Simulated assay, not measured.
Amino acid sequence: MSYTNILSERSNGITTITINRPSKLNALNSATIQELHSAFDEANKDAKTKVIFVTGSGEKAFVAGADISEFADFDVENGGKLAAKGQEILFDFVENLATPVIAIVNGFALGGGLELAMACHFRVASDNAKMGLPETSLGVIPGYGGTQRLSQLVGKGRAMEMVMTAGMIDANQALSYGLVNHVTTQEELLPLAEKIANKIMRNSSVAIQGAIKAINANFKDGVDGFKIEIEEFGNCFGTEDFTEGTTAFLQKRKADFPGK
């Protein structure tokens, strides 16, 4: 599929989706959000894609925020619709994908950019990365799940401070908060992500899909995460991957998972 604002390419089991609006510091507008939905959906349905990377073009920004010019004149109704649609087609969509999604945060990840990174299953960052939710400095709050996911990742007190001050934290502070999993140099950022992805790809994609569902269930209101875990655990016993994994273990060889 051809895109205007993003790039998508697959290599060695990894589909890399790059937000490609360098003149706007890769800011998210409605067209980019829609293209991202399509690219994530396509990659998730591609049997040859085992891991998805999302990053921003250039070295300055992952995503420097939302394109404010698109909604500066919105009223209450339109503002609510903007948040609801964005969460549905991109942020919640990414969080619940069956394929692992790693955010490669290179530079600024602000507002909607940090919200996109937080929607991914986990994050690696360059040592020059800066992260924050500056929305209150514009008279609004994060609307793409930022208030919810930030508090889940860093705790209520830190989330309150970050949102209320509208300030930025650096990569090492984000690491200490648990907002990112790893920090490295810009030069080593992609190799590190690839190293992690290769570890993931050694394992059962079917089991990983079940694990994503079970872990996410813990953060959903009205959902019993333990019950989902039991269901997904049981489902594994009916898969070819389970048969291959247990057989390989007993035969003391490396498993070759069929992904079924």
Results as ranks from 00 to 15, higher is better:
190 L>F: 14
82 L>Q: 07
172 N>P: 06
8 S>E: 07
66 A>W: 11
7 L>S: 13
220 K>S: 10
14 I>P: 03
7 L>W: 12
228 I>D: 01
234 G>W: 09
94 V>K: 04
32 T>F: 09
155 G>L: 04
165 T>G: 06
154 V>H: 03
53 F>L: 00
155 G>R: 01
122 F>H: 04
198 N>H: 12
157 G>M: 11
146 G>R: 01
102 I>M: 06
214 A>R: 02
148 Q>T: 13
100 P>F: 08
196 I>V: 14
58 G>A: 00
30 S>V: 14
42 E>G: 06
221 D>H: 14
104 I>N: 05
238 G>W: 12
251 Q>W: 07
114 L>K: 04
37 H>I: 03
226 F>W: 09
8 S>A: 15
237 F>W: 13
231 E>S: 07
133 L>G: 06
243 T>K: 13
8 S>N: 07
211 A>T: 10
130 K>W: 10
248 A>T: 02
233 F>P: 01
122 F>L: 08
212 I>D: 00
110 L>S: 07
150 L>Y: 05
173 Q>A: 11
57 S>M: 10
199 K>I: 13
54 V>Q: 02
85 K>M: 13
110 L>W: 02
162 M>H: 03
149 R>T: 10
227 K>F: 11
146 G>L: 00
27 A>D: 02
6 I>N: 10
36 L>F: 05
72 A>S: 14
208 I>W: 03
59 E>H: 13
142 P>F: 02
212 I>P: 00
227 K>A: 15
10 R>T: 15
133 L>F: 05
115 E>L: 04
258 P>V: 07
67 D>P: 06
1 M>E: 10
127 D>H: 07
78 N>W: 11
15 T>V: 10
184 T>C: 11
82 L>H: 08
255 A>S: 12
116 L>P: 03
259 G>K: 07
153 L>I: 11
49 T>M: 03
105 V>L: 08
48 K>L: 12
230 I>D: 12
67 D>T: 12
167 G>M: 12
222 G>A: 01
210 G>K: 11
250 L>N: 03
